[in-house]
Design a protein around this nucleic acid. Structure first.
Lengths: 182, 182
DNA sequence: TTTTCAAATGAACATTTGTTCAGTTACATG
DNA sequence: CATGTAACTGAACAAATGTTCATTTGAAAA
């Protein structure tokens, strides 16, 4: 059911998908859905929360350490590898924020903030090491995430590039952006 | 009316905004809206089409010429200056694509493609001039647009940075990404 | 076999949706 | 003043929405 909801919501948007459509996709009647979620809002929020928690847990598991460039490369490659196969979830997590209640929004937003902070920490470390040239670590962190996220707008599994190839291209872009190519 | 629609749709999403809400925002009854648009879908499409046409026209007016680095800087700065004050429209143009009919989608998508092509041409010119180091001009073009677009996710007029400052930071990121800092 | 109980049904509910349209308004033109 | 016309109203429409719930189902436990 979550999987069906993710697919439909990513494709049409939360407000544009009815509980009946989700039920039909699962092969069940509407009422049955309410055995699994108290309401539509909770369902949406739980999808986003699960995704973000998953993201943070996997980042943690990467256990990045060592020099800032090494960590940045690890972060960038992790981000792509994790998000590309989850483009529906990523899309939802960015687009449906506005449909959350204030409390749910705050919850998701703080998880996203945690993720951004991790990247910012790497950038600051790189500044300290004197290997990165960065004007503003906070903005650069968000800009890099936008850059990396861009891939989900055009990526198609049947496209001309392999995931490894894409990973390499984007890592080169990131590397240059933090002034690491000179 | 268009202004009201843009504000509401950017805030809540197209499917989540009813014609009655738009009418109320304008201070009018529902029926009156249908003197200005044949239906909701056309309204949405027209908002996006107007925005994209506006974008292309203004880019044209920039009349970028000269060396690739100069053109790229012009493009990047133009992109930020144009889009930051239009964050609602930009948001809609990315998020509501999926709610367009196939014909309307094709129309908007081809305008976006034109814009991307212009940037890609600059990147290719830079490769020819030997001043850019780029693995894949198409992907780099889309990646740079994602990077630049990121700003609309966090920009607030009352924030700590001026538009000029932001422009400079992002231009530095772009410059580095295409290998122009070494 | 009988009992139990979680899960699914299917119909119902009050709202809300996009859209239409006959009628009213208000204002510029003759 | 009268006339024409463009814009707006307000009610109506069928369809679709999220949600509830008494009832049925089906399979595991006794």
């Amino acid at each position: 059911m979550r999987a069906a909801a993710v697919r439909l919501i990513a494709q049409h948007g939360c407000a544009a998908v009815s509980m009946r459509q989700i039920a039909a996709e699962v092969g069940v009647q509407v009422g049955a859905l309410y055995n699994y979620t108290p309401d539509k809002q909770s369902l949406l929020c739980q999808l986003m929360e699960t995704h973000m928690a998953d993201l943070l847990a996997h980042l943690e598991a990467e256990d990045l350490k060592g020099s800032a460039p090494k960590q940045l490369e690890g972060f960038a490659r992790f981000h792509m590898r994790f998000n590309i196969p989850r483009k529906d979830e990523v899309f939802i997590s960015y687009m449906e924020l506005r449909n959350l209640t204030p409390e749910n929004f705050a919850k998701i937003e703080s998880m996203r903030r945690t993720y951004e902070d991790r990247l910012e920490a790497i950038l600051k470390q790189g500044e300290d090491e004197g290997v990165f040239v960065i004007a503003d670590s906070r903005i650069t962190a968000m800009a890099l995430i936008s850059l990396l996220n861009g891939v989900i707008n055009w990526y198609r599994p049947e496209g001309r590039l392999t995931i490894q190839g894409i990973e390499q291209i984007y890592w080169d872009l990131v590397r240059g952006a933090v002034g690491m190519r000179g």
